[in-house]
Measured scan of single mutants.
Amino acid sequence: MEVRTIKVFTTVDNINLHTQVVDMSMTYGQQFGPTYLDGADVTKIKPHNSHEGKTFYVLPNDDTLRVEAFEYYHTTDPSFLGRYMSALNHTKKWKYPQVNGLTSIKWADNNCYLATALLTLQQIELKFNPPALQDAYYRARAGEAANFCALILAYCNKTVGELGDVRETMSYLFQHANLDSCKRVLNVVCKTCGQQQTTLKGVEAVMYMGTLSYEQFKKGVQIPCTCGKQATKYLVQQESPFVMMSAPPAQYELKHGTFTCASEYTGNYQCGHYKHITSKETLYCIDGALLTKSSEYKGPITDVFYKENSYTTTIK
């Protein structure tokens, strides 16, 4: 009895394709271990004539594949690729409408935090270190965002349907971005203890939790000093293409032309909904596939993004 075979390709990165001759009487799992086709788990399936010449994702289970996976995804987590594939199996079914010149995501599976993050990423200057993220990001900007969303979920250790947080998501993504040249110098002034300067680099240099107003941050924000008295913390120097200011959701007025974009969060910790506000020729609110415009805006804002380049204080 002759062994019926077909020729397929296996890959971990969709760049390096490895030619395989597979036995049609055995499952993919018996031949390769966990195997995925377009995100779908085909591990328990036997090869079919229609699979001839198709590319299958496999887990990096030998040295060659491990090197290829690390170079593309910059992670050695053995569960990463499987999590990416199972997320992709959902995100490829989502709709990605162009809204006001940006790629958004039609609401499904509690994905409003991903839509808000995706919209924000198209408006701030950011370059990702893992080629996987950078490639998928370019495709997302062009309207094909399924891979990018699935990668975000995998890097953030999230599953489809789980509630997510924009600030946490951005923080994970910033860790995989090139923020080497970003720098922030802060000064804390206390009447009792004097003053202390701190220099922050990388992710810490672009994120701040405690106030939404970048102007206020430049002037000074009140913080408790270690001595128990009130101290003032203010920005001395900022070198970065953008800054992200966050605070627990509270009524906040966004003035046209003073910011790049913002995240609105309605609801409580267990259950809520994100919308995205962007400042173009007027203010726009993007909620999944829905767009509304207004000249002014007041609502429960939790993150505001500002364009920056270089700032030095005039406070002496």
Results as ranks from 00 to 15, higher is better:
2 E>H: 10
2 E>Q: 10
3 V>C: 14
7 K>G: 13
12 V>M: 15
12 V>L: 10
13 D>G: 06
22 V>A: 15
23 D>E: 12
24 M>W: 12
25 S>Y: 10
26 M>K: 08
27 T>H: 12
29 G>R: 06
29 G>Q: 14
30 Q>T: 10
32 F>A: 08
35 T>I: 07
36 Y>F: 15
37 L>S: 13
38 D>M: 13
39 G>E: 10
40 A>H: 13
40 A>C: 10
41 D>I: 11
42 V>I: 13
42 V>S: 10
48 H>M: 14
48 H>W: 13
54 K>M: 13
56 F>V: 11
59 L>V: 08
60 P>S: 11
60 P>H: 08
60 P>A: 11
62 D>P: 08
63 D>H: 13
66 R>N: 15
68 E>M: 09
70 F>R: 15
70 F>H: 11
71 E>Y: 10
72 Y>C: 07
74 H>Q: 10
74 H>I: 05
76 T>A: 15
77 D>Q: 07
78 P>W: 08
79 S>F: 15
81 L>D: 02
83 R>C: 08
85 M>T: 05
85 M>Q: 10
87 A>D: 03
89 N>H: 07
89 N>M: 09
92 K>G: 06
96 Y>V: 02
96 Y>L: 04
100 N>W: 03
100 N>P: 03
104 S>K: 03
106 K>Y: 10
106 K>Q: 06
109 D>R: 04
111 N>H: 03
112 C>K: 01
114 L>W: 04
116 T>V: 13
116 T>R: 01
116 T>N: 11
119 L>C: 06
120 T>F: 03
125 E>Y: 06
125 E>G: 09
127 K>M: 14
127 K>W: 07
127 K>R: 13
128 F>Y: 09
133 L>K: 00
134 Q>G: 07
134 Q>S: 14
134 Q>T: 12
135 D>V: 10
140 A>K: 01
140 A>L: 11
141 R>S: 11
142 A>Y: 12
143 G>C: 05
145 A>Q: 04
147 N>G: 09
150 A>T: 03
151 L>T: 03
151 L>N: 02
152 I>W: 02
153 L>S: 04
157 N>T: 06
158 K>A: 04
160 V>P: 08
162 E>A: 08
162 E>T: 06
162 E>H: 05
163 L>V: 09
165 D>Y: 03
165 D>L: 01
167 R>E: 03
172 Y>R: 14
174 F>P: 02
176 H>V: 07
176 H>G: 02
178 N>A: 14
179 L>G: 00
181 S>V: 08
182 C>V: 06
184 R>H: 03
192 T>C: 11
192 T>I: 08
192 T>Q: 15
194 G>K: 06
194 G>M: 04
195 Q>P: 15
199 T>M: 10
199 T>D: 07
201 K>F: 13
201 K>R: 13
203 V>S: 13
206 V>A: 03
207 M>I: 07
207 M>W: 04
208 Y>I: 07
209 M>F: 15
213 S>C: 08
217 F>K: 02
219 K>A: 11
221 V>D: 04
221 V>T: 07
223 I>V: 13
225 C>Y: 00
225 C>A: 01
228 G>R: 04
231 A>H: 01
232 T>Y: 09
232 T>I: 12
234 Y>W: 09
236 V>L: 10
240 S>R: 00
240 S>W: 00
240 S>H: 04
241 P>Y: 03
242 F>Y: 02
243 V>I: 10
243 V>L: 07
244 M>Q: 01
244 M>R: 05
249 P>E: 00
251 Q>T: 08
252 Y>S: 05
254 L>T: 00
255 K>D: 06
259 F>W: 00
260 T>A: 09
261 C>I: 02
261 C>P: 00
262 A>H: 00
263 S>D: 06
267 G>A: 06
267 G>W: 06
269 Y>T: 13
271 C>A: 15
271 C>P: 00
274 Y>I: 03
276 H>N: 04
277 I>Y: 04
283 L>A: 00
285 C>S: 07
286 I>V: 07
288 G>R: 00
289 A>V: 09
289 A>P: 06
290 L>I: 15
290 L>A: 14
292 T>F: 07
295 S>T: 15
297 Y>S: 02
302 T>Y: 00
302 T>H: 01
304 V>T: 02
304 V>M: 05
307 K>F: 08
308 E>Y: 04
309 N>R: 13
313 T>P: 07
